[in-house]
Design a protein around this nucleic acid. Structure first.
Lengths: 340, 340
DNA sequence: AGACAATGTGAGATCGATCTCACATATATC
DNA sequence: GATATATGTGAGATCGATCTCACATTGTCT
């Protein structure tokens, strides 16, 4: 029969002191005699005492855990973000709980409630909906440390880290237009998502500025997986007069578009030009190399974590809203389009 | 000033009953009068009472959280595993804490200790070291629910989910040999890692069976990132007599190899044949499409989670050691090598 | 009517750590 | 020597929920 984990009570008993004295000795606060402290440490060592952070948390009102609710950890962008947040949290003696909203509002709400009831210390959330955010406002109203990442939510006045989605998308589409394209397709995520709205807005603004009419037939909606993007791309390019260029709103969709073009026998950039939002591992390997709107992924997660831990350590000034710039990286997947 | 979260005490006071009665009403156990139950539920509703799982956990001795310690969440293989475990955990009312060991033994030990002191319910771990595992044996000895994933550890007698690394690697190398290759390179991870050892063993066994002498110059060690793999591949192929084929032990290394070959002007499969362990999103997109040893990623995470939750629910029979088969998927990155 | 079981409820112990207050002793200052 | 401060320690309250035991009432069976 394996004994239960040693508790402070056990340490105190072995050291022949009270629990309060043992606590003072182990945590170096208040007054403790030198000899007594040594006895307590020796007892703790002998028993293999490691403490119960659960009990600490109940007394303090907070569990040293931060929560991270993203769309899908399988998206390399979110995986990188989670990785950086976990590394940051670890440096501050915290652990990271992850939850995938899977872009479902109810699931996001449920996850937040679940983690709230664990009394975790704070949240980094990529909101599923740009507009349905009473649950986020509720957290803010209760002064729960919260940082929005990758997306913001209407009326949610708290720290946030995003990139210039609209500007990045606009530059991409402007570039395609400057290369002679007029029928530019858009591979789009759910319009409830902030980044989709912003990137769509950039797409529309660029077209509008060039006097090109919006054409709904050139926009295809896909969930953010390679598989869904393959289908959406095939739908888009099976039309009678398909686009001559495609702009995709994340790297999984870019990869899905590549697979779809291959299966359709469409050559890039000969038959169709392609620009994707967000860089990815093999973007420089594919033939041709993919032109992308890159975002500073190495900064986003870390900055969000820093903002959160600043809140956790008591910072109370106005919410910080950080918006990183993007950069159009011109590689080889765009060719000039000339109409006959 | 925002009030603190309502507690059971508040609910009991509003309903004019004791805390015990309120608890019985809200959790549907013991005897509670109908009218009393209604009053308690109405009070809870009115106060927005959501409970404190921290206090519950202290009383029960366990936090409804499971921990997942993998190498690096950015590896798509681990991202998929974490995703599936989190989804499974959520169905059982648990949350998932992740920790990246970053293939550092001390970090894995520290993470495990950290999570132990939170009294979380169980662990799924991809051990950093095949042989240094006293910390894992310690958990097992204390009957902590533990499932090893992707790798096992010597002497750690607990549930595990792996694939046939040795067999998969052997098949890959046998295939290269059958295509006439004799100088077969290996892009390898740290040899402390179980999967590296196994895949190396498969590589060696296949060469040995064909009477081909092992050549240390054909083995390059890399950490499991695209960047490191690029460097390791360049080192391997900058030799006077480089390999005519390359076997890489994970998908990030495969991608790194591709990038390295591009930068070196090496053509696949014309100049070098390539087989990678583990499939990846664009393996069928690249030109040529990459031949891979595929593992059932959609099964691994879920199976590990199922085993863990079976333990959590009281299963006490002998540890289950599951080993999935792999499959060689022949695509276009291997060509026949004929010596002049 | 009496015995026994079912029903309903509240008080307080418990989980394990932290913290405060009370008490005792030692030291410093006037 | 008296007073104030510093030092050292233990008892028990506290966090918030669950659970057990004690007590009271109601219902059933003989």
């Amino acid at each position: 029969m394996v004994p239960k984990s040693p508790t402070l009570k056990d340490v105190a008993a072995l050291a022949n002191v009270s629990r309060a004295t043992a606590a003072r000795a182990l945590n170096s606060y208040g007054y403790v005699g030198d000899e007594t402290a040594q006895k307590v440490h020796a007892a703790a060592e002998r028993l293999g005492y490691r403490g119960n952070r659960l009990a600490q948390a109940l007394r303090n009102g907070q569990l040293p855990i931060v929560g991270c609710i993203l769309g899908d950890i399988q998206n390399p962008f979110f995986a990188r973000i989670a990785h950086d947040i976990e590394a940051f949290a670890r440096e501050y003696g915290h652990n990271l709980v992850i939850g995938s909203s899977e872009e479902e509002l109810e699931q996001e709400i449920s996850l937040l409630a679940s983690l709230r009831s664990l009394s975790i210390r704070g949240f980094i959330v990529a909101p599923t909906s740009a507009s349905n955010n009473a649950h986020l406002k509720g957290l803010i109203a209760e002064n729960v440390p919260l940082v929005l990442i990758d997306r913001v939510a209407e009326g949610a006045d708290c720290d946030s880290v995003v990139v210039d989605n609209e500007g990045g998308a606009r530059k991409a589409v402007e570039y395609l237009i400057s290369m002679g394209h007029r029928r530019i397709g858009l591979l789009q995520d759910d319009m409830r998502i902030f980044t989709s709205r912003e990137r769509m807005s950039g797409y529309q603004t660029a077209l509008g500025a060039s006097g090109i009419a919006l054409d709904d037939r050139l926009v295809s909606v896909s969930q953010s997986t390679v598989e869904h993007a393959v289908d959406a791309t095939i739908r888009l390019f099976s039309q009678k007069t398909p686009p001559t260029a495609l702009f995709t709103v994340d790297s999984l969709m870019t990869q899905g578009a590549l697979l779809a073009f291959r299966s359709m026998g469409i050559s890039i950039p000969h038959d169709v030009s392609l620009i994707g939002f967000d860089d990815f591992n093999l973007a420089t390997f594919t033939d041709p190399q993919i032109t992308v709107v890159s975002q500073p992924v190495s900064e986003i997660g870390r900055t969000a974590a820093r903002l959160l831990f600043e809140r956790l350590s008591g910072k109370i000034d106005a919410p910080q809203k950080i918006r990183f710039e993007t950069k159009l990286i011109v590689r080889g997947s765009v060719s000039r389009h000339s109409s006959a």
